[in-house]
């Protein structure tokens, strides 16, 4: 980190979110393999995703993906738009704003079942 300006924070966040998403992806490839073992084993295994702590992990993953995606667009804009580098700092704040704006409604759908609310009409919670 150098003087902790927005460029460094975006760089660090891009790395950390990228590595976290990768770790989840590797786990996810393995857990989805269980679908080849039939409905009983698969449904039993993925009921883990409905535990409240795992819902919170999913929520963190959603936040990480949204930030990484929008900050990636910012990086591409700096690469291909001649004047892009002049606005890198402003664009970083736009990235943060858009991330939060998309995150909040998605978070409601993920977290609501913990409190017994099913926005989609049907959902269930796995008891701890």
């Amino acid at each position: 980190m150098y003087r902790g300006q927005s460029g460094q924070w975006s760089w660090l966040l891009h790395r950390v979110t990228g590595l976290a998403i990768l770790l989840f992806l590797l786990v996810h490839i393995v857990d989805i393999t269980l679908i080849g073992f039939g409905p009983t084993i698969y449904n039993d295994a993925i009921s883990i995703f409905s535990l409240w702590p795992i819902r919170l992990v999913s929520l963190a993953l959603i936040g990480a993906v949204l930030f990484h995606a929008f900050n990636g667009i910012r990086i591409i804009l700096i690469d291909f738009w001649a004047a892009g580098y002049k606005y890198q700092s402003q664009m970083f704040y736009v990235v943060l704003a858009v991330t939060i704006l998309c995150f909040l409604p998605m978070a409601y759908f993920v977290v609501a079942p913990i409190f017994g609310i099913c926005p989609q009409g049907s959902c269930s919670m796995t008891a701890m």
Binding site: I46, F49, S50, A69, V110, S122
Partner: peptide
């Protein structure tokens, strides 16, 4: 950007994750 965000939307928003069964 599109593939991953749409995937998250389908598995966590339009359908709750508890319903993404076999």
């Amino acid at each position: 950007v599109f593939l991953a965000i749409i995937h998250l939307f389908l598995m966590h928003v339009s359908t709750d994750v508890s319903e993404t069964v076999y």
